[in-house]
């Protein structure tokens, strides 16, 4: 009886896990199935073909978009880590006038919905002449309130004696941040790095607004426009192939660093 119960339990669990995995499996299969089989596909197509992929590569510069996404997401992640730790350090370890004020301003901006600044931010980009440049994709995201708060929290747990000792050794403040605090804050850096990278990799609304030139588009934007526009010529497999390409880099990274992904995103409590 107990054994029966446990079989039932695992069957139910497996079915629910399949609910989350099978659609992705179907998508991959559909992207390598002949176009006319997709409508009936459930498990395995009768023959495999890469024609959807070759057609997609002909139609959209997905490789260039991958590079763009990589440049944008890496620059943002780098900026967020550097600026975040600088500001987090000042807010946690240095005394200065206005410190609390700045801290509360940061907290306040976190509660501010982005919907309010969307239109004026676009206009700023227009006025700067940043439309259709990497600047528009990167600069507004270089500083992130959440990362500042997280760095601040983490640095607070690091004893002051460590910093004082470094100062006695003649380290300047930047050296303290990057030579002393960084090696001691790897969990925070990994967490902030992963969530920032993920968020900027998957961002799509902002690129849709500020980028019009195809050669500068990020991957999610290119795939979105491909999916809603007419360029897929109603070929379903081609659309799915582009979606597979978009998912692939992150899924690969996820397979290798699953634990870090889950921990990071859970600790920040954000999605995407």
């Amino acid at each position: 009886m107990k054994k029966f119960k446990s079989i039932l339990f695992y069957t139910a669990l497996t079915i629910s896990a399949l609910t989350f995995v099978y659609p992705f499996y179907w998508m991959v299969m559909a992207s390598i199935a002949p176009e006319n089989e997709i409508g009936n596909l459930t498990l395995i197509p009768t023959s495999l073909t890469l024609s959807s992929y070759s057609q997609m590569l002909d139609k959209i510069p997905i490789g260039g978009a991958f590079i763009n996404s990589l440049i944008v997401a890496s620059s943002i992640t780098f900026g967020v880590l550097v600026f975040g730790s600088m500001i987090g350090y000042a807010l946690s370890k240095l005394m200065f006038k206005g410190r609390n004020l700045i801290f509360y301003v940061i907290i306040f901006t976190m509660t501010l919905p982005f919907q309010i600044t969307l239109i004026p931010q676009y206009i700023i980009m227009v006025k700067f002449g940043w439309i259709d440049t990497y600047w528009a994709l990167i600069v507004p995201y270089l500083i992130n309130a959440l990362s500042i708060i997280m760095f601040r929290q983490y640095f607070k747990s690091i004893p002051d004696s460590l910093i004082d000792a470094a100062r006695l050794d003649g380290c300047n403040e930047l050296q303290i941040i990057f030579r002393i605090l960084w090696p001691n804050s790897m969990p925070a850096i990994i967490t902030i790095g992963i969530i920032t990278f993920m968020a900027s990799w998957n961002e799509v609304l902002w690129p849709l607004i500020v980028i019009r030139e195809e050669s500068l588009m990020t991957m999610p934007q290119l795939v979105t426009l491909f999916a809603v526009g007419g360029r897929a010529e109603s070929q379903l497999g081609v659309k799915l192939a582009s979606a597979v390409m978009l998912a692939l880099p992150i899924v690969l990274a996820y397979l290798f660093f699953q634990k870090y992904f889950i921990q990071s995103m859970a600790s920040a409590g954000i999605k995407e």
Partner: peptide, 17 residues
Amino acid sequence: GAFFLPVIVSGVVVTIL
């Protein structure tokens, strides 16, 4: 890990799918 998979994938992929 299976339940978490859709979380990391872009919303664009999920929507097209």
